[in-house]
């Protein structure tokens, strides 16, 4: 059974179509990244998946329970960090976690134990009895994630969990996501940070203007754009563009004090550059080959190429 099964979700706000026919199948066990620029419709999709927003049309189920027909059963299987949602600042860190545990029907003892364990892992043990009002944004987000995982949810949903966090909190949040995944939770997270998606996700869906425009593993998405590779090289003295023209090299661009030589096959480019340097008596100061990056894939896709 898939952790999430969404069919043709649509949502408009007035004349803005925020989500335009999104379908998703997220298999159990992975970390699925929902990647897209700001305003692409990530949050709107997540809100429909988590039963916070009623879709105009379409269906969504979580481990087989329809989120809108059977909201309580579906929501019991999820832990959610909304993008625009936070914990109660009038309660302490610990009270927030216990309150959330109660909503999920956890026994008090188990919940206390789990809360202590999570607070420890998130580096908040010492602050557990302080009001959340006094916490920094990063600490609040850590409490937010603590609440979302207290009941070990089969599905963990995080909307931009690391946006705007300090380095330390960010690392703890990412570690926690990995840890939960290793312990068996399926994870769905959104981000506009490509490196994060690349490092964390087993599968990625790229969304733009309310539509999913590509999906697959990070490696697969990168390979789609494998043709646009280049070699970056710098010499000890200025050179002219003409020395780079050779069969197999598509173009050359000056890039600061370096040149970028685009080619379908980096092997041809590197060999050509070495022979030119030899011939013209140039010394090579630096040379690097680019790997296809997810960023490139992302930019190309969202540009509509």
């Amino acid at each position: 059974m898939n952790a999430v099964e969404a069919e043709n979700l649509r949502k408009s706000f007035g004349y803005v179509t925020a989500v335009d026919g999104v379908s998703l199948s997220i298999p159990e066990g992975g970390i699925f990244g929902f990647l897209g620029p700001n305003g692409a419709g990530k949050t709107t999709t997540i809100r429909m998946l988590t039963g916070v927003l009623i879709p105009d049309s379409g269906k969504v189920s979580v481990f087989g329970d329809d989120v809108h027909q059977n909201p309580i059963a579906a929501k019991l299987k999820m832990g959610v960090i909304p993008e625009n949602g936070t914990v109660y600042s009038d309660l302490t860190a610990r009270q927030n976690i216990l309150l959330t545990g109660k909503f999920y029907g956890m026994e008090k003892d188990l919940c206390e134990k789990r809360a202590a364990e999570i607070l420890e892992r998130l580096g908040l043990t010492e602050r557990r009895n302080d009001l959340v009002r006094l916490f920094s944004k990063g600490m609040r987000q850590r409490i937010s994630i603590a609440c979302a995982i207290v009941h070990s949810p089969p599905l963990l949903v995080l909307d931009e969990p690391t946006t705007g966090l300090d380095v330390y909190s960010r690392r703890l949040v990412i570690d926690t996501v990995r840890h939960m995944n290793e312990d068996g939770s399926t994870v769905l997270l959104t981000t506009h940070n490509i490196d994060e998606a690349n490092a964390l996700c087993s599968d990625i869906g790229i969304i733009d203007k309310g539509k999913i425009i590509a999906s697959g593993s990070p490696e697969k998405l990168k390979k789609t754009f494998d043709t646009s590779r280049y070699v970056e090289i710098s010499f000890d003295r200025p050179v002219g563009k003409e020395i780079f023209s050779a069969p197999g090299i598509t173009r050359a661009e000056q890039w600061g004090d370096k040149w970028r030589i685009y080619s379908d096959d980096p092997d041809i480019a590197v060999k050509h550059l070495a022979s030119v340097a030899e011939r013209d008596n140039l010394s090579i100061i630096s040379i690097a080959t680019s790997n296809p990056s997810l960023e490139e894939a992302f930019v190309k896709l969202t540009e509509g190429i």
């Binding site: 916070v52 929501k75 959610v80 909304p82 625009n84 949602g85 914990v87 109660y88």
Partner: peptide, 14 residues
């Protein structure tokens, strides 16, 4: 205003 509502609605409540 405090943005706790969004979180509350995502808990197992209707």
């Amino acid at each position: 205003r405090e943005k706790t509502y969004e979180r509350l609605v995502s808990l197992p409540v209707i």
